[in-house]
Nucleic acid binder design. Sequence first.
DNA 1: CGATTGAACAGTTTATATATTAGTCAGGCT
DNA 2: AGCCTGACTAATATATAAACTGTTCAATCG
Lengths: 213, 213
Amino acid sequence: MPTTNLDETARQILAAASRRFLHYGYKKTTMSEIADDCNMSSGNLYRYFPSKLDIAEMFVRVLRGEQVDNLRTVLDAPGRSPSQKVRDFFLLKFKLAYERFHDNAKAFELSSELILERPKVALEWENAEGRVLGEILSEGNADGSFAIDNVPAITKILQNAAYRFTSPAVFHETDEEVLAAELNGVIDLVLDGFAWRSAHRDHGKAAAVGSRS
Amino acid sequence: MPTTNLDETARQILAAASRRFLHYGYKKTTMSEIADDCNMSSGNLYRYFPSKLDIAEMFVRVLRGEQVDNLRTVLDAPGRSPSQKVRDFFLLKFKLAYERFHDNAKAFELSSELILERPKVALEWENAEGRVLGEILSEGNADGSFAIDNVPAITKILQNAAYRFTSPAVFHETDEEVLAAELNGVIDLVLDGFAWRSAHRDHGKAAAVGSRS
DNA sequence: CGATTGAACAGTTTATATATTAGTCAGGCT
DNA sequence: AGCCTGACTAATATATAAACTGTTCAATCG
């Protein structure tokens, strides 16, 4: 969702709003202030965005686009194996989220507010990142590193296993080094799981499911 | 933390408070009401508990004791392999948490309030459950199912990987069947990781750590 | 006539006053 | 003495009033 889709005026509004959202918080920036920054009346904002919340949503959509582009560089990194790329993906994702939310109450507020009112945005974010992760897994299937028959399902499983390291609420408590080390531990284990499945590709999945009783 | 440690009167207070906490919520039950239920004065409550929050803490400690006892039954279940017990452990833990918090705003409020003011209680809860999980892992080491050299570290990793299915905040959104299925997916994968490590027990850990670069 | 404004409205937030509650303690009861 | 009480206080919560903000739209502008 690049800004280039937007009218010049809409982009100006979005820029002014984003600045205020991050500096003063979502609730404390008023439509009049945004309008003043753009030298227009508050009523005129509604010719470009249906509501204040939609400005915030667009802001997050742009941010998501940048983050997904950023994560996609992991895919194109030369000389990295698919396993390494899985690790790179989650460590980068964690680092970006940590830097965004840690000691940044305003960003956290904007995120919470938007997720509360527009839960779909969070799901779309997860899915967009999941698509990148899925490409890494497919690459691993192609070169024989992995043996994943249902890429979207495994993508979801990985996202679930790493949930603790993507949830903004945790970032206030623990510090980055500790969390990164713990994330590496989880990744070590799931990559070993992939290794096992890759070595037992014929009957691996059926056996695993069957053993659940 | 069994109630048998407590004075008879303290147990009566705890029972009355627990009933009100769960029925009306923590903030909305007053010390006077608890005292009335026990046919005593509000001042007398402070001879048995230092503060209202300490009553809540004791309530949660008792609950934790019951939950840990409950989870411990997984350990003693006959005819279950260590792998199956790992799965049983997390599915039971998830089920207990889900039933406690889903559609139960009062329990959620009590939990949130206590965790906010007494974060240590949450850590102790995690550690107490971790000890049970650790015993399952050790059992797996003993019978050759697993090859875990650092049980506490792996315990933490498993708890991290299952974090999503233990965090009360999630239970409002999704429904139980879906979450249980996703949890099973995560467990399938980590158990396959154990299988791989067990099959490569000599050099497994060093290789995994070394491959992180 | 399309683009823009800003006053008006309904809903919400904030400020203020009032009421309630957690926790204390000097005294009463047994 | 050892328990217990209930009025008291500081702090918190609730209720009420005042101010503000998101959104609309008839009037204005270019």
